[in-house]
Design a protein around this nucleic acid. Structure first.
Lengths: 201, 201
DNA sequence: GCGCTTACTAAGCGCTTGCTTACCTTGCAT
DNA sequence: ATGCAAGGTAAGCAAGCGCTTAGTAAGCGC
């Protein structure tokens, strides 16, 4: 049943936005926010990135905050859906751990710029936006905990190991440098093995 | 020889600054930068935090950037010295790994606010300041690699495992919440065991 | 007592910020 | 042909920013 659509490592990230200025602005904002941080990035930076006047941005987005929200939502939904997709058809607990960690790590390596935004700019979201994002994050964490649960007895130990393994993937966004760091797929495979070592207590 | 001075978990962090407004301002800035981020924090926030007028800050620091540099340097030097101190008198490779990870993790949990600044505001440093900070970071990473080296054959594997284990400690700064998260010492002990599991390949 | 340094404040300057306004095209249904 | 919505620009506004200036008050050596 996986003939027509392979996982294809982060291809259709921006597909939920129409081709055109709305998508281009979101991509530009993701790039700039990821490089400089939300508060250090000006609307003029973003506009210039797409070759538009500063005012042109407001034809497509109501505010800089809405741009951050859009980006953050797309990123979080992508992580969740790719993690979920990676588990499809896999039933062995060990293999499920492997598939999840591998997918999660690869996502943060391939999309390290966007990952920085969604992981480190949560506090820059407006309260109403944050609530929406937080809900998606809870789903992702719940999915991970569900995958790791078969390997644990007590909830406390499960919780700590879940946090630790997600930490490994998330922190990739902080240190990953395209040229100097390992290939995403190599890294994902290595981290998946690391996680399985970590989980045999 | 350890009669008078125990490690004492992050006690003398600010002692290199004289008691008084200079120290108070640094602590206030660390607190505000950690909470809101460097670029979202204004000099008025910091001044208000110590009950001073916005202009009073500039009697003790030349700029907001110098405040960030001072904080970052103190934090990085503290991590390095505490990590180094934790290894004193320990010769068994396994125990050295345990001591380092334990100390590193505890530091990031106890000082999670300052840790956020030193780990996530590197790009906010001015180029000249960054060079100084980067040198300290290289020392810390070298220390960690030295501790892990006895357990590895090839340099590539050592490098990846070093990054991964430091990731665990650093990412504590991102998610740690004083009331809801484990006690720093408990967490440090747990993560040290995690790291030893991780390192038996 | 005097002069000088140190620590601080009130006021505000120059600049940048996010965003708005007024206007100008272009494409297209009627 | 024409009316009009959609997408863009030039100019600029109000607010907030880091930081400076001018002045005050207290402490201290002599």
């Amino acid at each position: 049943m996986k003939i027509s659509s392979e996982p294809s490592v982060g291809g259709e990230l921006w597909e939920m936005l129409p081709v055109g200025p709305r998508r281009a602005l979101a991509q530009a904002a993701a790039s700039e926010f990821g490089k400089r941080g939300y508060h250090a990035t000006t609307t003029r930076h973003i506009a210039e990135h797409v070759g538009m006047s500063p005012a042109g941005l407001y034809v497509h987005y109501a505010s800089k905050a809405e741009l951050l929200f859009t980006i953050s939502r797309i990123g979080h939904e992508s992580v969740l859906s790719e993690s979920s997709a990676a588990l499809e058809g896999i039933s062995s607990p060990d293999e499920r751990v492997h598939a999840l960690v591998r997918s999660f790590t690869i996502w943060h390596a391939v999309n390290h710029n966007l990952a920085r935004v969604i992981q480190y700019e949560l506090r820059s979201l407006e309260p109403k936006h944050y609530q929406v994002i937080a809900a998606i994050r809870r789903s992702t964490e719940a999915l991970a905990a569900e995958v790791f649960r078969p390997l644990f007895r007590d909830a406390e130990s499960l919780s700590m190991h879940t946090v630790a393994i997600l930490s490994l993937g998330i922190d990739v966004a902080r240190w990953y440098v395209p040229g100097r760091s390992p290939d995403p797929i190599v890294l994902g495979e290595a981290y998946a093995k690391l996680a399985r070592n970590l989980l045999r207590a």
